[in-house]
Amino acid sequence: MEVVDPQQLGMFTEGELMSVGMDTFIHRIDSTEVIYQPRRKRAKLIGKYLMGDLLGEGSYGKVKEVLDSETLCRRAVKILKKKKLRRIPNGEANVKKEIQLLRRLRHKNVIQLVDVLYNEEKQKMYMVMEYCVCGMQEMLDSVPEKRFPVCQAHGYFCQLIDGLEYLHSQGIVHKDIKPGNLLLTTGGTLKISDLGVAEALHPFAADDTCRTSQGSPAFQPPEIANGLDTFSGFKVDIWSAGVTLYNITTGLYPFEGDNIYKLFENIGKGSYAIPGDCGPPLSDLLKGMLEYEPAKRFSIRQIRQHSWFRKKHPPAEAPVPIPPSPDTKDRWRSMTVVPYLEDLHGADEDEDLFDIEDDIIYTQDFTVPGQVPEEEASHNGQRRGLPKAVCMNGTEAAQLSTKSRAEGRAPNPARKACSASSKIRRLSACKQQ
C-alpha cells in the first residue's frame, strides 16, 4: 500500500481520502468484538498479612480480608486513616479506646483483636480482627420478611446475652447493641463488635452510672431520649438488646419516626405494640426488656430465667442462610486472597510482582521504634555504632529488605517449588510478632 504524507491529507475531501486508502487503516468495530484482558491483581503485604478484597466500608474506614502468612488464618483488617478520623467527632479517641478494650477481652461471643499495625509515614492504622463471614443486618436484609425464624432468632439472642453478660462482668457498657454490630462466623457463632462508643466503668465505681451516649437513635432507651444527665449503663444495653430481639423476630421496630426528633419523642413516651403472632412468652420477655422505668427493666439474670429464653424451640421454618457475597455473588464466600496468593505462588519472584506497604510497620504502639547501633568497621576489626531503624520486634528492616532482594536475584530452581506461605513470609520485609 502506498504511504501517504499526513501533511497532504488536509487537502483532500472525505471521498478523496477514502480513495487514497484511509479506509485501510481506520476501522470501526462493535464493542462486543473487544476482548478485555482482566487487570492483574497485584499482591500487597502489610507486615506478614497478605491483603485481599474489600469486605465493607463504614464511617471510620474500610475493612478488607487478609491472610496471615505465618498461621494461614483468615483475618479481617480495619484500615483507618488518621486524616479521616480527625474529621469525625471523637474519632481518634474512640478508636484508641476500642483498641484498649479489645486487647483485654477474651470471649467467644466478643470479636477478638489479633494485631494492631501502624504506618507512621502514611498515617494509617490497621486493626487486624478475627474473620466473620457476614453481619446479622446483612442476613436480615437478604430476606423479604426482614426477620429470622424463632428457632434461629433464639439461638442468636442467647449468644448475644452470653457476650453481653461477659462485657458487663468486665465493667464495660457497649451502648450500641444492634444487628449491624453483631457479626457471624461460618459456624454460626455470634460476635459482638464495634466497641468504639463503649465505656469502661471505673474499677471502684459504686454502680453503672453513665453520662454520655453515642449509640444508634432507634435503639436508645427513654432515659436517653428524654435527655437525662445520668442513667444506668447496663440497663441501656438491656433495652438495646430488647429492641434487637423485637427486630429479628418481627422484622419491625418498636419505635419509629420520620426524623430523629419524632423518633425520640415516640421513644420518650414509651408506647409501642407487640405483634400478636409473637406469642405470650416472647411478648412477656419483650415487655420486661423494654420496660420504661430502668429500675423495673429486666436484668440479665431475669432474662436467663425467663421461660422463652430457657425453652427449646424446634425449627418450624427453614433458617435464613448466609447470603452470597454482594460484589462477586459467591454463595460460598470464598477467600478473596486466592488470586493474590496464586500471583505470588505461580509467578517468578520479581520485585515488580508484589507490593510491600512499607519497609517498617510499627505494631502494638503509636510511637516510632527505637534505634540500635549499626556496626561500623574500624582499624582493629571492631565496629562502632551508628543508628539503624528496627521493627518493634527488633528485626532490622533494611537488612531483611536487602537480603530479600538478593535472594530474589539468585538463580535457584529449587526455590520455585516452595509453598505459597513460605514465599509470602520471604517477601515480607518486616516480620511481626
Rank of each mutant, 00 (worst) to 15 (best):
residue 290 L to C: 06
residue 37 Q to R: 10
residue 336 T to W: 15
residue 35 I to V: 05
residue 58 G to C: 02
residue 375 E to S: 11
residue 419 S to A: 11
residue 282 L to W: 02
residue 274 I to L: 06
residue 181 N to G: 00
residue 167 L to D: 00
residue 330 D to N: 12
residue 387 P to V: 07
residue 258 D to M: 03
residue 385 G to F: 10
residue 290 L to V: 03
residue 146 K to H: 12
residue 110 V to E: 00
residue 70 E to G: 03
residue 424 I to D: 13
residue 382 Q to C: 07
residue 412 N to A: 13
residue 346 G to T: 15
residue 163 G to C: 01
residue 326 P to Y: 01
residue 312 K to N: 14
residue 407 E to V: 11
residue 9 L to V: 02
residue 392 M to L: 14
residue 122 K to H: 15
residue 55 L to A: 01
residue 383 R to Q: 13
residue 243 V to W: 03
residue 388 K to W: 13
residue 83 K to T: 01
residue 102 L to H: 15
residue 161 I to R: 00
residue 357 E to W: 05
residue 282 L to G: 02
residue 156 Y to G: 01
residue 162 D to L: 06
residue 398 A to K: 13
residue 306 H to P: 01
residue 406 A to I: 14
residue 38 P to R: 05
residue 224 I to F: 07
residue 50 L to I: 15
residue 428 S to N: 04
residue 240 S to V: 02
residue 60 Y to S: 12
residue 306 H to C: 05
residue 271 S to D: 15
residue 432 Q to D: 12
residue 179 P to A: 04
residue 175 K to S: 05
residue 312 K to V: 09
residue 97 K to W: 02
residue 241 A to C: 08
residue 86 R to D: 15
residue 250 T to K: 01
residue 213 S to H: 15
residue 51 M to A: 12
residue 309 F to R: 01
residue 265 E to T: 14
residue 6 P to M: 03
residue 238 I to S: 03
residue 404 S to K: 14
residue 142 S to E: 13
residue 83 K to A: 14
residue 349 E to Y: 05
residue 65 E to V: 03
residue 268 G to I: 15
residue 376 E to K: 11
residue 280 P to R: 07
residue 211 R to S: 10
residue 100 Q to H: 09
residue 116 V to R: 05
residue 348 D to N: 03
residue 418 C to H: 08
residue 6 P to R: 09
residue 274 I to W: 01
residue 423 K to I: 09
residue 416 K to V: 11
residue 127 M to E: 14
residue 323 P to A: 07
residue 343 D to R: 07
residue 13 T to V: 14
residue 201 L to K: 15
residue 151 C to H: 05
residue 284 D to R: 13
residue 62 K to A: 15
residue 221 P to I: 02
residue 226 N to C: 09
residue 55 L to R: 08
residue 208 D to L: 11
residue 58 G to F: 00
residue 426 R to D: 11
residue 75 R to K: 13
residue 142 S to G: 15
residue 247 N to R: 05
residue 252 L to W: 11
residue 221 P to Y: 00
residue 175 K to N: 05
residue 97 K to N: 08
residue 202 H to S: 08
residue 342 E to R: 13
residue 65 E to M: 02
residue 300 I to S: 02
residue 36 Y to I: 06
residue 385 G to K: 14
residue 201 L to R: 05
residue 134 C to E: 12
residue 78 K to P: 00
residue 405 R to C: 10
residue 178 K to F: 02
residue 225 A to S: 06
residue 312 K to M: 12
residue 217 P to L: 01
residue 140 L to K: 06
residue 123 Q to E: 07
residue 79 I to W: 00
residue 349 E to I: 06
residue 263 L to A: 02
residue 18 M to V: 02
residue 140 L to R: 02
residue 72 L to Q: 09
residue 433 Q to H: 08
residue 274 I to F: 07
residue 278 C to Y: 02
residue 426 R to N: 14
residue 379 H to W: 04
residue 144 P to A: 07
residue 251 G to P: 00
residue 390 V to P: 13
residue 110 V to M: 02
residue 295 A to F: 06
residue 285 L to H: 00
residue 342 E to I: 11
residue 268 G to S: 14
residue 403 K to Q: 15
residue 83 K to S: 15
residue 240 S to A: 05
residue 283 S to V: 08
residue 419 S to Y: 15
residue 29 I to R: 07
residue 27 H to G: 13
residue 363 T to N: 06
residue 144 P to M: 08
residue 45 L to S: 10
residue 424 I to G: 03
residue 335 M to F: 10
residue 23 D to G: 13
residue 103 R to V: 04
residue 77 V to D: 00
residue 52 G to C: 12
residue 383 R to F: 08
residue 205 A to F: 10
residue 323 P to S: 10
residue 414 A to G: 08
residue 182 L to W: 01
residue 337 V to G: 07
residue 247 N to P: 00
residue 18 M to G: 10
residue 135 G to Y: 10
residue 301 R to I: 15
residue 361 I to G: 05
residue 409 R to M: 08
residue 420 A to V: 13
residue 70 E to L: 06
residue 78 K to L: 01
residue 413 P to T: 12
residue 204 F to R: 05
residue 206 A to N: 15
residue 233 G to R: 01
residue 393 N to C: 13
residue 139 M to L: 08
residue 346 G to K: 15
residue 13 T to P: 14
residue 71 T to L: 05
residue 407 E to C: 08
residue 45 L to V: 05
residue 217 P to Y: 12
residue 151 C to A: 11
residue 117 L to E: 12
residue 46 I to Y: 09
residue 413 P to V: 11
residue 87 R to S: 06
residue 259 N to C: 07
residue 91 G to S: 04
residue 30 D to V: 01
residue 53 D to W: 01
residue 247 N to T: 05
residue 298 F to P: 08
residue 117 L to K: 10
residue 116 V to S: 05
residue 357 E to H: 14
residue 184 L to N: 02
residue 299 S to A: 11
residue 60 Y to L: 03
residue 109 N to K: 07
residue 250 T to A: 06
residue 360 I to L: 07
residue 402 T to K: 10
residue 200 A to P: 10
residue 185 T to L: 07
residue 35 I to R: 15
residue 82 K to C: 09
residue 55 L to F: 00
residue 372 V to E: 09
residue 108 K to W: 04
residue 247 N to W: 03
residue 294 P to G: 04
residue 207 D to R: 13
residue 260 I to V: 06
residue 266 N to K: 01
residue 276 G to I: 02
residue 363 T to I: 04
residue 343 D to Q: 06
residue 388 K to H: 07
residue 39 R to S: 08
residue 177 I to P: 01
residue 162 D to T: 11
residue 142 S to Q: 15
residue 37 Q to L: 07
residue 381 G to Y: 11
residue 344 L to G: 04
residue 243 V to C: 06
residue 205 A to S: 08
residue 297 R to P: 00
residue 135 G to W: 03
residue 114 V to D: 08
residue 299 S to E: 14
residue 211 R to G: 13
residue 229 D to Y: 02
residue 64 K to W: 11
residue 250 T to W: 12
residue 295 A to S: 12
residue 120 E to H: 15
residue 391 C to L: 13
residue 406 A to T: 11
residue 108 K to Q: 11
residue 160 L to G: 00
residue 278 C to A: 09
residue 271 S to Y: 00
residue 146 K to Q: 13
residue 406 A to S: 11
residue 309 F to S: 02
residue 361 I to L: 10
residue 329 K to A: 14
residue 330 D to T: 14
residue 180 G to I: 11
residue 365 D to S: 13
residue 295 A to I: 10
residue 314 P to S: 10
residue 324 P to A: 10
residue 408 G to R: 14
residue 24 T to G: 11
residue 343 D to E: 12
residue 267 I to R: 06
residue 177 I to H: 00
residue 233 G to T: 15
residue 134 C to W: 01
residue 277 D to H: 10
residue 339 P to C: 14
residue 222 P to F: 02
residue 288 G to L: 01
residue 165 E to W: 02
residue 7 Q to C: 13
residue 121 E to Q: 07
residue 154 H to G: 01
residue 222 P to R: 05
residue 140 L to A: 02
residue 41 K to C: 12
residue 81 K to L: 07
residue 396 E to L: 07
residue 396 E to F: 11
residue 35 I to F: 05
residue 184 L to S: 03
residue 3 V to M: 03
residue 359 D to I: 04
residue 10 G to C: 11
residue 430 C to G: 13
residue 272 Y to W: 06
residue 102 L to F: 07
residue 269 K to P: 09
residue 268 G to Y: 10
residue 364 Q to G: 03
